[in-house]
Design a protein around this nucleic acid. Sequence first.
DNA 1: AGCACGATTAACT
DNA 2: GTTAATCGTGCTC
Length: 204
Amino acid sequence: MKPDVGQLKPEGWQQPLASSWFERPATEVAPDLLGRLLVRQVGDEVAAGWIVETEAYYGENDLGCHARAGMTERTRIMYGNPGKAYIYFTYGMHWLLNAVCMPSGFPAAVLIRAIQPAFGEEWMQVRRPKRAKGWLDGPAKLCQALEIDSRLNGCDLGLHTSGLWIAQVGRPGLDMPIGKTPRIGLNSVPEPWRSMPWRFTLGQ
DNA sequence: AGCACGATTAACT
DNA sequence: GTTAATCGTGCTC
């Protein structure tokens, strides 16, 4: 009988990236996150997905970035320490997950836009019943699947304690080229920010 | 206190 | 291809 490779936990899945790993421009961190493992643990339940799509949001000058308006209650986390989760609510119903980049004081983050299931698929399906193609392709979809919401805003992605981390382990067979395109959904953002090639994809 | 809008998604035509 | 759903946030009065 053929083993279900997708359900095996890869070596190193419990080893989070250090906070200092995120202390770089978001435009460098975003492509570097591709192929790494986003892990969620709630009690005894664990699920994880390979990151395959990211976007960089970088500084107050970036008019596509929430920090364009300076520091507010919402963007406070983005101005904080690298490696923190910046999670915000949009369109009245969706949560989106970012990883904060750069040293404290400079607002920058990487939006996690899509994952592919690595293990714990059953647990993800509890909240995302449809297992059709594309069921985890979307920043709000993966947050729903992994039970990510405001309770995790500001948590440290470099620690296990909050139950959400990014493991350093790279996906096997990481030889595909990285795609670069403009960011999605910035419909009213002026140029050149709207077209900056800060969306990064792996095998899509 | 009121208002316009959004780093989306699903369900349409 | 288009559009409704739905509400926290940030800005204006």
